[in-house]
Simulated scan of single mutants.
Amino acid sequence: MTKIGYARVSTVDQDFEIQQQRLKAEGCVIVRSEKVSGASRDGRTELATIIEFLREGDELVVTRLDRLGRDTRDVLNIVHDCEQRGAFVTILDPHVSTRGEMGHLILTVLGMVAQMERRFIKERQREGIEKAKTIGVYKGGKVRIDHRRIREMSALGTSVTAIAKEIGCSRMQVYRVLNAK
Rank of each mutant, 00 (worst) to 15 (best):
A48T: 10
L178H: 13
R148K: 15
A132C: 09
G168V: 10
C28M: 06
R119T: 03
D71R: 10
M153W: 05
F120H: 12
I135W: 10
V143A: 15
E130R: 07
D13I: 03
V96T: 06
R144D: 11
R64P: 00
S159C: 08
G141M: 03
R99H: 07
E34G: 08
G128M: 10
E26V: 00
R99I: 11
S37T: 14
V137L: 14
T11E: 13
R99D: 09
Q125T: 14
L105D: 03
E56Q: 14
K133F: 06
K181D: 15
E130L: 02
R99S: 03
F120T: 15
S97A: 15
R124E: 10
R119A: 12
T90G: 03
F120C: 11
E101A: 15
G5N: 02
I129D: 06
K35W: 02
V113F: 14
D81L: 06
G103C: 09
E34A: 10
F16W: 08
S37L: 04
E56L: 11
M172R: 07
G103T: 09
E59A: 03
E101V: 10
H104T: 09
R151V: 11
E152N: 14
G128S: 09
R44D: 01
G69I: 00
V137A: 15
D71W: 02
I167M: 02
L54F: 03
E117Y: 15
C82W: 07
Y175E: 15
V109Y: 07
Y138P: 10
E56A: 13
H104Y: 13
V89S: 05
F53I: 00
T11C: 07
N179T: 12
M116K: 15
T108I: 01
E166H: 11
E101R: 07
D71Q: 15
I121K: 14
R85M: 10
A39F: 11
